[in-house]
Structures are given as structure tokens and as C-alpha cells.
Write a protein that binds this DNA or RNA. Structure first.
Length: 475
DNA sequence: TGAAATGTTGGGGCG
DNA sequence: ACGCCCCAACATTTC
């Protein structure tokens, strides 16, 4: 009898350097690639249409690439343990292989799958989603790292695995039926956002374009908001359309060792791993502060301020541009993610979890570990977080990272005619200038929602009261 | 991956 | 020539 293994794809939607897939082909003559639409995920409030749309396209691309090699992707919808049990019976498979996922939801789900398949077939999970396995990098004391820089040194000191190409021949039994291919509306979503193309094929193209044309300038251009200085690879890494090890080695081998662009981009890849291992070792961060003392912070949580922040109508141009970039493109430049997160938590005094949820709903690259880590960093509640007294001034940040205002003008059309001098503080324009440029504050563009100086003092007071004593500055 | 407040220095205007 | 003040420019401290 032909030996068959089910390869359950989840967030590793590629053939290149896919650990579980390679292992399955090494162990079996035929592999059944399957993806399962899970209503427990689709119905979650923070599952956004842009991510489902990107997922669907990535699945189509995976199917095309499988077909080009004589295989195909099987789609099913249902509870994973039931679907997999059914498929094991239908195909007489001897094992289910998948790549591990460290999210608490996924760990519970996968434990349920293991329990359900016990006695029917083998179940194996592989390490795949990062440069290293989440438990592999430890301090000398054997504890997980909670500070980025030493973590990064430790990752760089050990060998990152070399990527391996897809198996040359892919054999799949022809007689296993899948469910019909759903449309986005079949899954309960619609979106008018125009997204980057999903899938492994565009991911490879984007990687090569970035390595050739962007990497050398990355260190200097990544913070220039108007330039396309970032890699734009985050959605592909999120869904595993791109292997992080492939990305790492492509960067290492592209430019001379020690080039600042390479080092800073690789540091970003390591941030991804860092927050993944934080979520793995400290799963309580999903619902609360990494440093638990901060769970008692007295956020003001003004709901109408939150709505204005979400819509990009705070009267702070850099914040509004960023929030509108998120809604209209499904993505936000990392520099402005920090700025708007600082603004929500330190200026509006709103719970970082509200912002985290909004980001998850709208980001095409939305990922629990990275998003949570970033939010807790900005809110000063996390590992290796920004000290609470380091508060961004949105106007100063705008002037620094968007000096000509071209990023602001791209997303905030009512400010397009405003001269550079006032682009980051339009409320400072004399009234006759406002009229001359058709941007009357309070009519065409909102007045600043809050006074930054005052809110800053309030935030310092709020944090100062709840900060753990040993972390309080001074003495 | 901060920014504001406060302190210090030194040049120039001025009596 | 000198002291005084002002204030930019820079450095340090504080949150």
C-alpha cells in the first residue's frame, strides 16, 4: 500500500523551505496538501477582511504552484480535528504533519487535534515559522530572553538554518475530493482595499526586488515616510508565503558583510522571532501587560476619542495620515505604527488593547505576537519596552520623518494645499492663511483633539503612580 | 526607536 | 577696556 501523509498548511503557505512539507515528502510516497477554513478563526472579531482576502489569494497561488508540480491543494471547511480525522480515513494516511504555531489559540487547537487523532495516525509538528525555534534561544541561566539586544546577539551567535528548496516532485492521490473553492463573500467578508498580491510567487519577486534595489539604502530610507524604503514583506512573512530563513540568507549573501542596510533589516527579522518567543514563553501577554503591575493602569478610555483616532480625525496630521493609510491600504509604515500607538496610549490615555484590536482588524500583516509586542512596547507595559517617560511628540515626529509633508498629503487630502511650514501643525496657521489655502481649522480639518503638553503630563502622572518602584527613574 | 526642562558657555551689543 | 545682559547653541538632567 502507498504510504501517504497529510500536510496541513496553516500559516506556511509556500513550497520553498517548508519544513513539514519537506519532511512529509521525505517520509511518504504521496502527500495530501490540505488547508482548512476554521470558523473559530473566521468568526473572531479581530479577523479582518483584508487578511482573509490576502489568505485566499495566497491559497490560490499555493494551489497553482502545487499543480505546476503535479499536485494540488485540498480545501475543506470545518473543525480541524473532524476534517483531519475524516481525511485520514478517506486517504488511509499514516500521519498528519504541520508546522507549529505558538499562538495560544493554535496550541489549544493542535493539542485537540493530537488527542482526536490519537490511535488513528501519527501527528507531527515541526519548527518552521522563525529563524530559530521559539525555545531554542536561552540565556546562560536557561531562561527566555526578555530584552531584545542580548536576544539578537544570541541569535546571531548561533547558526540560522540554510533554506532548502521545495521537493522536486510532488505526488498527490487524484481521488480525494475537496470542498468547492470559496469566494471572499462565501467566507463572510468583503473589502474594497487594494492589497499587494498574495502568495509565494509575488513574495519571491518582492524579496528579490528588495534585496537588489532596497536593501543597501534600507538603513537610511526606512524611516523616511514618503519613500518606499521598507521591504513590504510583512504580509508574506505573516502567512508564511516567504520563509524567514530564505529572507535572512538572501540578505546576508546580497551585500558585503556589515553593510548597515543588511544589519538593520536582519534586526527587524529578529524582532519578529523575539516577539514570537515572548508569546510562547509568556502567553499572558495576549490578554494583559507583560509586566503585570501595569494591568492596574487607570486608562481613561474615552470612546469618542477612540473613534476619531480610528478614523484619522485627531487634528494631528501625522497620526491622521497613518490611521487613514491603515484603513485604505491595509498596511502602515512601522515608524508611524509607533507614533500612533504612542499617541493613543500617552496622549489619549486609551488602553493599548483597544489599539491592538483595531490594528488586528485592519492590518494585512496582522499577527498576534508582533502586534502585541509592538503595542506593549509603545504602551511601556511590555518586555524591553520604551520607558514610560519617553513620549513621542506627534508634531516633532512628523517634522523629523516627513519633513516635506508628502506622506501627510498623500493620505490627508484636505491638507494638500497647506505649505510645508504648517503641514504638521496646521492649527498654527493664521486665519487668513487658512482661508487662502482652503483649509479652515475646525471646518476643513479638525482642531487638535488634545493639548499634547498637557496630556503628556497626565500620562506621566498616571504611569508614575503605577510604575513598579525599581523601574522608576532616579535614585 | 524622546522630548522638555534646566544648566552652561561664549559671542556680541551696549553703556 | 570692562561689566553686564541677552540669548543662541550646546550639554545635562529629568520625566
Amino acid at each position: 500500500m502507498t504510504k501517504r501523509i497529510l500536510c496541513w498548511f496553516r500559516r506556511d503557505l509556500r513550497l520553498d523551505d517548508n519544513t513539514a512539507l519537506l519532511a512529509a515528502y521525505a517520509a511518504a510516497e504521496e502527500v495530501v496538501p490540505v488547508f482548512i477554513f476554521d470558523d473559530a478563526i473566521l468568526s473572531r472579531p479581530d479577523t479582518g477582511a483584508v487578511r482573509v482576502a490576502f489568505l485566499l489569494e495566497s491559497l490560490r497561488n499555493l494551489d497553482e504552484n502545487l499543480r505546476a508540480r503535479g499536485s494540488r491543494l485540498l480545501l475543506r471547511r470545518g473543525r480541524p480535528e473532524h476534517v483531519l480525522a475524516q481525511l485520514v480515513t478517506e486517504t488511509a494516511a499514516s500521519a498528519v504533519y504541520f508546522n507549529r504555531d505558538v499562538e495560544p489559540f493554535a496550541l489549544v487547537r493542535d493539542a485537540r487535534v493530537r488527542a482526536h487523532l490519537e490511535g488513528r495516525c501519527a501527528v507531527e509538528g515541526f519548527d518552521d515559522g522563525g529563524l530559530t525555534a521559539p525555545e531554542a534561544v536561552r540565556t546562560k541561566a536557561g531562561t527566555p530572553y526578555t530584552v531584545f539586544t542580548p536576544y539578537k546577539q544570541a541569535v546571531l551567535a548561533q547558526a540560522v538554518l540554510r533554506p532548502r528548496p521545495a521537493p522536486a516532485a510532488l505526488r498527490t492521490p487524484a481521488d480525494v475530493p475537496g470542498d468547492p473553492w470559496p469566494s471572499l463573500t462565501d467566507l463572510g467578508f468583503t473589502t474594497s482595499v487594494s492589497l499587494p498580491p498574495g502568495g509565494e510567487t509575488p513574495a519571491q519577486a518582492r524579496l528579490h526586488d528588495f534585496i537588489q534595489n532596497g536593501l543597501a539604502r534600507y538603513a537610511t530610507e526606512r524611516d523616511v515616510l514618503s519613500a518606499e524604503g521598507t521591504s513590504r514583506l510583512s504580509p508574506y512573512l505573516r502567512f508564511g508565503c516567504l520563509s524567514p530563513r530564505r529572507a535572512y540568507w538572501a540578505a546576508r549573501e546580497a551585500v558585503p558583510e556589515g553593510s548597515p542596510g543588511v544589519e538593520s533589516w536582519i534586526a527587524e527579522l529578529i524582532w519578529r522571532d523575539f516577539y514570537r518567543q515572548i508569546l510562547f514563553h509568556f502567553p499572558h501577554v495576549e490578554s494583559g501587560a507583560f509586566r503585570r503591575a501595569y494591568d492596574d493602569l487607570a486608562w481613561e478610555n474615552n470612546a469618542s476619542w477612540f473613534d476619531l483616532w480610528c478614523q484619522g480625525k485627531t487634528g494631528f496630521p501625522i497620526v491622521d495620515a497613518a490611521m487613514r493609510q491603515l484603513l485604505t491600504t491595509g498596511w502602515m509604515h512601522n515608524r508611524v505604527r509607533m507614533i500612533v500607538a504612542s499617541f493613543l496610549t500617552k496622549d489619549l490615555l486609551i488602553d493599548w488593547r483597544w489599539g491592538e484590536r483595531h490594528f488586528m482588524k485592519h492590518l494585512v500583516d496582522g499577527d498576534l505576537a508582533a502586534n502585541n509586542g509592538g503595542w506593549q512596547w509603545a504602551a511601556s507595559t511590555g518586555t524591553d519596552a520604551q520607558p514610560y517617560f519617553r513620549i513621542f511628540n506627534p508634531t516633532a515626529q512628523g517634522k523629523k520623518f516627513d519633513p516635506t509633508g508628502s506622506y501627510v498629503r498623500r493620505y490627508v487630502p484636505e491638507l494638500r494645499a497647506v505649505p510645508d511650514r504648517w503641514i504638521h501643525e496646521p492649527a498654527q496657521m493664521p486665519v487668513e492663511v487658512q482661508r487662502a489655502f482652503r483649509c479652515v481649522i475646525g471646518v476643513d480639518y479638525p482642531a487638535p483633539l488634545v493639548d499634547h503638553g498637557r496630556q503628556r503630563v497626565k500620562a506621566l502622572t498616571m504611569f508614575g503612580r503605577f510604575a513598579s518602584p525599581e523601574k522608576r527613574p532616579g535614585r
